[in-house]
Simulated scan of single mutants.
Amino acid sequence: MAISKKISVLLNLADLLAKNKPEILRKNELDMNSFADMDESMKDRLKVDENKVDGMIRSLREVAEQDDPEGKILYDFTREDGLHIVNRTVPFGTILIIYESRPDVTIEAAATAFKAGNRILLKGGKESFNTNTYLTELWQRALSENGFDTHFVEYLNLSRDETQKLIKENTHNVDIIIPRGGDNLINFVTENSSVPVIVSGRGNNFMYVDDDCDTEMAIRLILNGKKRISVCNALDKVLINKNLPELKEKVSDFVSELHSKGIDVWGDKKAASIYSEIKETNDKMVLFEEFMAPKIYFSLVENMNDAIEMINRYSGGHSAVIVTNDAEKADTFMQKVDCAAVYHNASTRFTDGGQFGVGGEIAISTQKLHFRGPLGAQELVTNKWFVYGKGHVRE
Score class of each variant (00 low, 15 high):
H259C: 07
E280P: 11
V265M: 06
S256T: 11
K284C: 12
V255G: 04
A271L: 14
E257S: 15
H259T: 05
W266G: 06
K279T: 00
I263Q: 12
V251W: 06
A271P: 13
S273E: 04
S252W: 02
F254G: 06
F254I: 13
S256R: 14
E277D: 08
V251H: 02
S273W: 05
D268L: 02
W266I: 04
N282R: 03
H259K: 14
F254N: 04
V265W: 06
E280Q: 14
F288Q: 09
T281Y: 03
E257W: 04
S256K: 10
V255K: 01
K284P: 00
F254K: 06
S260Q: 07
E277M: 13
S252N: 12
V255Y: 03
A271V: 15
I274Y: 09
F288L: 08
S252R: 11
S260T: 14
V255R: 10
I263S: 11
K270D: 00
V251P: 02
K279C: 05
E277L: 13
S260M: 14
S273G: 08
I263T: 15
H259W: 02
K270Y: 01
N282S: 01
V286D: 10
L287E: 05
S273R: 04
A271G: 03
T281H: 01
E257D: 12
A271N: 08
V251S: 07
E257I: 13
N282P: 07
M285C: 06
G267S: 01
D253Y: 13
V251A: 09
S276Q: 09
I278T: 05
K269W: 01
L258Y: 01
D253C: 06
K279S: 01
E257C: 15
D264E: 11
Y275S: 12
